Simulated assay, not measured.
Amino acid sequence: MIEIKFFHDVLCPFCFMTNIRLKNVLKDFKGEVRLKHKAFIMISSLDDLKAIAPTEEDAREVFKNEFSILKRYMKDYDPEKPISKGKIGYVWSLPPLMACKAAEFQKGDEGHWEYFTRAQEKFFLEGENVADDQVLIEIAKEIGLDVERFKRDFKSKEAKLAVMEDEAEAKAMGIRGVPALLINDKWLIRGLQTEDYLRKVIEDLVKNGEPKAVELKAYWEQ
């Protein structure tokens, strides 16, 4: 069994694309790959965001630039559409990442994955503020979580600690940005990769147990 740890942030457009590509690839490797989801904070506080975006309109411009990245990979994507709703302003990383952990508490890594995917869709496609409590609760309802338990968990010390533990693990592996894929706690793949490359890596490891057809570097070599 291959284990892939996917370090990501809900607010990361490159993580959005990596998530889509991983889903497409891993459906062909059921029972051979276990995907674990790891939180990584890009915007650590509202103060950090306000330092570069003094007004909510400034913040929308910041996120519009981030959303525009998706135009490179999604032919019909229009960043104006979600931004024009006016709901995205002061959005930061910790609330949606804690919500992903609350989903994980109930349904394991599959729950985390489902919640993370829906949160990113809400943000990048529907223009919702995924740091807003009501949006996070609505996602929990949509994916069939026990909502009352979710309400207790998504702001809990346990959820925050789980995020902080993932951050500490990323730091120990030399991960300074996302997306990042850590395979079998050894080989590290940084940044957005093509589906073809991801498939070749997994096929290689499934067949050989270690990289032979594809060159990979251990995290300590990077």
Results as ranks from 00 to 15, higher is better:
90 Y>S: 04
68 S>F: 02
135 V>W: 00
155 K>G: 04
26 L>C: 12
169 E>R: 03
4 I>F: 15
159 A>Y: 00
81 K>N: 13
131 A>L: 08
196 D>L: 10
50 K>P: 05
143 I>W: 03
12 C>D: 14
87 K>R: 13
143 I>C: 05
72 R>D: 12
186 K>W: 06
41 I>Q: 12
57 E>S: 10
129 N>W: 02
23 K>G: 12
148 E>G: 09
151 K>R: 11
3 E>Q: 14
102 A>K: 07
191 G>N: 05
47 D>L: 03
170 A>T: 07
1 M>E: 08
84 S>D: 12
193 Q>P: 03
177 G>S: 14
199 R>I: 07
189 I>C: 13
89 G>C: 10
179 P>E: 08
156 S>E: 05
10 V>S: 09
2 I>R: 03
161 L>P: 01
129 N>I: 05
7 F>I: 00
25 V>C: 07
120 Q>G: 03
112 H>C: 04
59 A>D: 04
61 E>Y: 05
2 I>C: 03
206 V>T: 12
22 L>F: 08
89 G>S: 09
186 K>M: 13
117 T>F: 08
116 F>T: 08
147 V>M: 02
86 G>T: 09
107 K>G: 08
133 D>L: 11
37 H>A: 00
118 R>E: 13
142 E>G: 09
213 A>P: 02
76 D>Y: 01
10 V>K: 05
35 L>G: 06
126 E>R: 10
86 G>P: 09
29 F>I: 13
97 L>C: 05
36 K>L: 12
23 K>C: 08
18 T>Y: 13
105 F>V: 01
6 F>Q: 01
164 M>Q: 07
215 E>R: 10
97 L>N: 01
47 D>Y: 01
176 R>L: 02
203 E>T: 09
71 K>H: 06
183 I>P: 04
182 L>P: 01
120 Q>M: 15
139 I>Y: 01
147 V>P: 06
105 F>T: 00
210 E>H: 08
206 V>M: 11
64 K>D: 03
28 D>H: 11
179 P>C: 09
32 E>K: 15
183 I>N: 03
138 E>C: 07
37 H>V: 01
136 L>Q: 10
80 E>A: 10
95 P>A: 12
43 I>T: 15
114 E>H: 09
